[in-house]
């Protein structure tokens, strides 16, 4: 691929990721999947319509990536919500999905939607050098494989064994380990702000 082609691909990708319309569309898609619109029985009850309406309004706003410094001008609810809107969206989407049992394909689609949102948000908030390390093609393939594997396990009939509590316990242990690893860590020798790791403001 020539330099010009690579540059135009990069600029079109950047334009897509910085477009509010793209993120609003992604938020609407998450609202549609989170409220189980494809699985609705018609005519839908009013509470489902209300929930869908709320999510279609709220998710596009919450989906816009927050690229500023994580600093609060004031400890007011709206300031906190603006700074942590992406966290609110992921949490809200997962809780919405957890409320109702979906078909196996929808569980996989939900996981893919969530993975896509988290990776795309990283793509706009992390510097390119760091992103290349954290979202390498091998890692993305692994992510898709894990989603497919977990969905396949969930899709098995419930009478097939006691694998689900083990799966949940493993997930819980991994969550605890990740939380601990995030809070405490070790260091390696390198300089702060070394070449190639600058973040553009």
């Amino acid at each position: 691929m020539s330099d010009e082609t690579a540059e135009s691909t990069f600029s079109s990708r950047e334009a897509l990721l910085t477009s509010p319309l793209f993120w609003a569309g992604y938020g609407v898609l998450m609202a549609v999947m989170g409220t189980r619109l494809p699985m609705w029985s018609w005519p839908p009850p009013p509470d489902q319509i209300l929930l869908l309406g709320f999510c279609v309004l709220a998710f596009p706003a919450l989906a816009q990536p927050y690229v500023g410094r994580p600093v609060l001008a004031a400890v007011r609810l709206n300031h906190v919500a603006i700074a942590h809107r992406n966290t609110l969206l992921t949490g809200g989407f997962v809780m919405l999905v957890a409320c109702e049992k979906p078909p196996a394909w929808a569980a996989g689609a939900d996981a893919l939607l969530l993975a896509g949102y988290l990776v795309l948000t990283d793509a706009i908030t992390l510097p390119p050098g760091v992103l290349r390390r954290t979202a390498s093609p091998a890692f993305l393939l692994l992510l898709v494989a894990v989603i497919a594997g977990a969905t396949a396990l969930v899709a098995l009939p419930s009478s097939s064994g006691a694998y689900r509590p083990i799966l949940a316990a493993a997930a819980g242990a991994a969550a605890l380990g990740a939380a601990l690893a995030t809070a405490f860590g070790r260091a390696e020798v390198r300089r702060v702000g070394s070449r190639g790791t600058e973040r553009r403001n």
């Binding site: 939900d110 954290t134 992510l143 989603i147 969930v154």
Partner: peptide
């Protein structure tokens, strides 16, 4: 809610795959 396990796998993998150092 077993259908949440694939959802949990995504962030857990992203958290644990790359150990951050500082």
């Amino acid at each position: 809610a077993w259908w949440c396990v694939p959802l949990a796998a995504v962030p857990l993998l992203m958290l644990t795959a790359h150990a951050g150092v500082h």
